[in-house]
């Protein structure tokens, strides 16, 4: 008999593409978090934004365009979402955030993003080493240009949420719920799996 862990917040009710925000909304709706706690989290996010802006641009400027600031904030929120997803159950993830704070969760997200980056590099190495000269043109383009471009241009500190490229080699996988590096990671894994089956 399978006994599933009872959780107040169901993962399937959350938006995978906007995980942090949807978890906050759900937690507020179910009164698992107070308005004051949400405000404290927002304050921590703003402090983290200022810190990250200083680190990224502070050498040359004391101000940035609102567009850059918004992109940085989106990047932070995305990274927090990645951090939350490292905890399987949303209730656990919420507890973690409330006990440890935004900075710790952010670092957890950064760590996971770095793991995914390493994973993409390793998978791409395999794809490139096993690529046949008579392979499909779309596959060749994806493996030799698109994915290497992602690794070159992806900047998790400024734009973790930006997947940078749009791979064109079709793969049988539903990517709708993914964005940012999660999308590229899932895509590369699916591409590798398919090419290995065909080999």
């Amino acid at each position: 008999m399978n006994i599933e862990k009872f959780t107040l917040i169901k993962r399937q009710d959350l938006n995978e593409g906007a995980y942090f925000e949807s978890l906050m909304e759900k937690a507020l709706e179910l009164k698992l978090i107070t308005d004051n706690a949400i405000e404290a989290i927002q304050d921590e996010c703003l402090n983290l934004l200022a810190q990250n802006l200083r680190r990224a641009y502070g050498d040359t400027s004391d101000s940035v365009s609102e567009e850059r600031a918004k992109s940085m904030m989106d990047s932070i929120i995305y990274t927090l979402g990645v951090g939350l997803k490292t905890l399987v159950y949303p209730d656990e993830a919420l507890d973690f955030l409330l006990k440890n704070g935004v900075n710790t969760l952010y670092l957890r997200g950064v760590k996971r993003i770095n793991e995914m980056l390493l994973g993409i590099r390793e998978m791409l190495d395999i794809l490139q080493n096993t690529l046949k000269p008579n392979a499909d043109a779309l596959l060749i383009c994806t493996v030799t240009k698109t994915l290497p471009t992602f690794l070159k241009k992806y900047n998790p500190e400024i734009a973790a949420h930006d997947s940078v490229v749009l791979p064109i080699c079709p793969v049988d996988f539903n990517f709708e719920k993914y964005n940012g590096i999660e999308y590229i990671f899932a895509y590369t894994a699916a591409l590798l799996s398919e090419t290995e089956k065909q080999a």
Binding site: L49, A50, L53, R54, G58, S61, D62, S63, V64, S65, E66, E67, A69
Partner: peptide, 10 residues
Amino acid sequence: HGRLEFGEGI
């Protein structure tokens, strides 16, 4: 001008 200042200012 749609800018945000995060440092000491100019």
